[in-house]
Structure formats: structure tokens, C-alpha cells
Simulated assay, not measured.
Amino acid sequence: MNKWIYVLLICTFFSCKEEAKKSVEEPKQDLKSLAGFKEVKDIQLYGGSLYRLESYPSKFIKSRPVDVWLPKNYSEDYNYAVVYMHDGQMLFDASQTWNKQEWEVDEWATKLVGEDLVKDFIVVGIHNISDIRWFDLFPENAINYLSKEEQESLADYNGKSDYELQGNNYLNFLVKELKPLIDKTFSVSTDKSNTFVMGSSMGGLMSMYAVSEYPDVFGGAACISTHWVGAKPGDINPLPEAIFKYMEDHLPKAGQHKLYFDYGNQTLDQYYPQYAPRVDAILEAKGYTKADAVNLFFEGKDHSENSWNQRLNKPLVFLLDK
């Protein structure tokens, strides 16, 4: 009897040892690959690496690519802040964009982190679909501040004879689908104090809209060359007033958020300086000071990535300063 117990113990010992050895030798599963993200090799980066989910199967909006930029020496032992950016295909490599310009996000992120001016962060870039970009990025609920007649004539302002706004669905995709995926796939801090949204032009409007609709999700927004016009510039255009009335009612009060706005005065940006006093008044009425909200003017700057990449350090430092 004792003999068989002894044999059983020996077998059990070697079995456990083999299992332990097997568990050590098995490679750790790559969460990025499991989620469908693949590293983009044919891209010119100043630093870091780029992973792409080629076609996110959203139930809210039309499927599109999503990019995630990771800094050099990205580690799963550390939790990073996250900056969600619109127009993702314009952020990293000018050789692959339609106008041969880029935001230089990887350049600025690498330099600012390297100089210890900002907390460590990753960037999530949501690609746009040019034909429906306006519908995706217009702050949809601002339409409620138009009269019935103005709503019916909205085609006169956006240049489309028929339209279906998707701003709320775009935010549903961002908050209810994409953010949970990023939170479980990458090593990030999930709280609002480490979650930001940034964009230019219509993306600036959507960034303002995101922090207004989901103030418990986003701790700050950077709205660069914000397209206060709302659509095509014109002498008779009720959209700016509707947008500002929406902001008066829904932009979060000061205390828990950081808001960055800016504008130039060339090309499409020439239409924005007239709205600066209204933006300033809204921020002041909400209790913001220069410590948590700015609306900066850049003389001679136009509406392009080449202008935005010259000052991208300012919104990044403003939102992500240590």
C-alpha cells in the first residue's frame, strides 16, 4: 500500500513540474493581436509604433480604420493617459495623406514626453470617411436650437440636399464601443482625468460636443481651428448661434475639466476671429479661468495641418501637463 502511495506522489510531482514548465514556456498572448490590431510597418514615424484595426465593426457608424500610436518603450507595466483624435489618417505620416501634410503627433508626443513636460500617453486616431465627415462630426443636438424653418433649410448650409446627422452615433461609437476596447486592450488609465479628446475644424466642434455630452468620460478637450461656422460660410447662417446656445446650456461648468480652443485668421480660419468674444464669454460664465480654459489666437495661421503642427505642443501641454 505504501509503495503505491509513493509511486503516486512521484507521478504527481513530475506532472506538476511539467505543467509549470509548460506554463512558463507558453508565450504571453498579445492583446493587441487578439483585438485585431496589427502593427503598421509601411509608415514613417519619428518615434514609437502604430497599430491599426483596419475596419472597426461598429453598430453605430460606418466601419472605418482606427489607429493607436504607442510611445517608444511602451510597457504593460505602466498605465498611460489617452488622447482620442479625429481624422486619424492625417496625424502621423505626410507621405500617406491626401494633401501631403500631417499633424506630426508622434514628433510632438515623443519630444514632450522626452522633455518631461507631459504625462505619458497614447493616441487613438479615428479615421474619417470624407463623404460623411460633416454628418459624423457636427454636434447633432445643437440642431435643436434652430427653428423649424431653419432646420428644414439646413441643406442650404451644408450643401447637401438630404442629410442624416450622425454626431450622437459617432459619440456612441467612441464612448460605448471604442473606449472599452482600448481600455481592455492597452495599458491605460481609464478615468476621465486621463482621457481627452482632440480635433480640428469640424473635429474641434466634435471635441467640444464630446466633453459636453460625456463630461464623466472626458476630462478635457482640445478644439483647434474650431469651425464655429458649422458648415459653409455664408452671410445668413444660423448654425453658429445654435452651437453657442447649445454650449451655454451643456458645456460643463469649471472645476473638473480643461478646455483648449484656438484659431488663426487665414483661409477658412478667417471666419473664426469674429466668434472669439462669444466663446470667451461662455467660458467666463461657466467659471473658467486661464488655468483651465484658453482661447488662443495665432496671427497669420491658416486652416491646415501645417499650421496645426506648428502649435500642437500647446494643447498637448495644456491637457497633459504633470
Rank of each mutant, 00 (worst) to 15 (best):
T12R: 09
F13P: 05
F14N: 02
E18W: 12
S23V: 13
V24A: 04
A35L: 14
G36H: 02
V40C: 06
D42P: 01
Y46Q: 09
Y46T: 07
R52L: 01
Y56N: 03
S58L: 03
P65D: 02
P71A: 12
N79C: 15
L91Q: 04
L91Y: 01
A94F: 00
A109H: 02
K111P: 10
V113Y: 02
G114L: 06
D116H: 13
L117T: 06
K119N: 15
I126E: 07
N128D: 10
S130C: 14
R133M: 11
W134R: 14
F135P: 13
F135K: 15
F138V: 02
P139G: 07
E140Q: 15
E150W: 04
S153V: 02
Y163F: 15
L165A: 06
G167Q: 03
N169E: 13
L171P: 03
N172I: 06
F173C: 07
L181Q: 09
V188M: 06
S189V: 03
N194P: 10
N194Y: 09
T195C: 13
M202I: 11
M202G: 11
Y209N: 03
G220N: 12
G220M: 11
A231W: 03
K232N: 15
P238I: 00
I243N: 02
F244I: 13
K245F: 12
K253A: 15
Q256R: 09
K258T: 10
N265F: 05
L268S: 00
L268W: 04
Q274H: 01
Y275R: 02
R278N: 02
A293I: 05
A293Q: 03
V294K: 09
S304M: 06
